[in-house]
Computed example of a mutant assay.
Amino acid sequence: MLGAMRAWVVEGTGPPGEVLRLIDKPVPDLREGTFLMEVGAVGVGLPDVFMCKGTYPLAPKEGSFTSGQEVCGTVVQAGDGVGLEPGQRVMTVTSFQTGDGGFAEQCLGLGHSWFTVPDSMDDATAAGFLIPYHTAWIGLVRRGGLKAAETLLVLGAAGGTGAAACSLGAALGARVIGVAGGPERCDTATSFGAHQTVDHREGDIAAAVRELTDGRGVDVVYDPVGGDAYTAATRCVARDARIVLIGFASGEWAPVNVRHVVQRNYSVVGAIPARYSREERLDDHRELSALWDAGSINSVVTASYRFEELPEAMRALESREVIGRVVLDLSSG
């Protein structure tokens, strides 16, 4: 036992403001394949909201738990074979599935999912980099096969996940069309790299995209939204297009119509970093770090909250008041 720490725990199921509690709890013991780290900053995402509500499939199944999927911080202690030494600064996916996530002063990182932090990247930026950008790389490069000069449609382009796809797609030489709700969010999508935007509040997404592409449609769709947005995207794809499914920010997974897929000659694929080897992930991170160092991709973090403000950060995220990626910065408390 390594002492006590402050941590946010989820007790029960319901809106974040009703089930989150800030308590003192024991520092977690190392589990096989993990390391203990001092948290500098932690990303806040919709999956954390869904965990509070009991609707996220990867959440701990029983009892109270601490969520928070990705962090940046300093290694305190590492298990055998993890390859880390105390004092190293890394970004990592946490052991949130065991309830030892990043909404705490110390957490457990996964020994197969840690990566070095570029010298020019601060903790808050790094805490919002790993999941959005690694997912974007796997979705666009490995699964979507995006090529320079192709047209990429990004749904949810003003959210953290979509923003990373806009930035990376532009860096890879694609023409990027971002879908967002309202002028402010469309402007934000443009700032992240979208060359053109579609305001889904102003009319039919598919009609607007077909007009922007002279009726041809898009080559790749990046979909972290699901639901009706996915269905609209299927009506504006080119022949041989690839639709990459990332998540369900709408609350509904993509309702894939297999008959339509066959009749229109497009592909639907899923993308998740967890299914790739350590060596493949390291290769991806080197590519992304080089793009960061060259100034070709941007930070998607747009809002930072103090550690004590987690319920407010989740409320703002759930109500779509914030744009881009949200983090808790423990150095600001």
Rank of each mutant, 00 (worst) to 15 (best):
A180H: 09
N265D: 13
C236L: 12
G139L: 09
R239N: 15
R185N: 14
P16Q: 04
E318H: 11
R185M: 10
G173R: 00
Y230K: 10
A157W: 03
G182L: 10
R325D: 01
E321G: 13
A157H: 02
D284N: 13
V220A: 05
V44W: 03
R325E: 03
A180L: 06
G226Q: 04
G68P: 00
G247P: 05
E38R: 15
G160T: 04
G251E: 08
A294G: 07
G178K: 02
R235L: 15
E279Q: 12
I131G: 02
K61P: 05
I246V: 15
L46N: 06
G181I: 05
A232S: 15
L2Q: 14
Y230N: 05
E85C: 01
V268L: 12
T116R: 04
V225K: 01
P28Y: 01
I177R: 00
R89Y: 00
L212K: 10
P47F: 03
S331G: 14
G193L: 01
G101S: 13
A238G: 14
T302K: 11
T66K: 02
P224I: 07
A158T: 07
L168E: 01
E279D: 13
Y230W: 10
L84M: 07
Q196W: 06
V42S: 11
M314K: 05
A41C: 14
V244A: 07
G139S: 07
V300F: 00
E11L: 13
T213C: 11
A59G: 14
G193K: 01
R264A: 11
G17M: 08
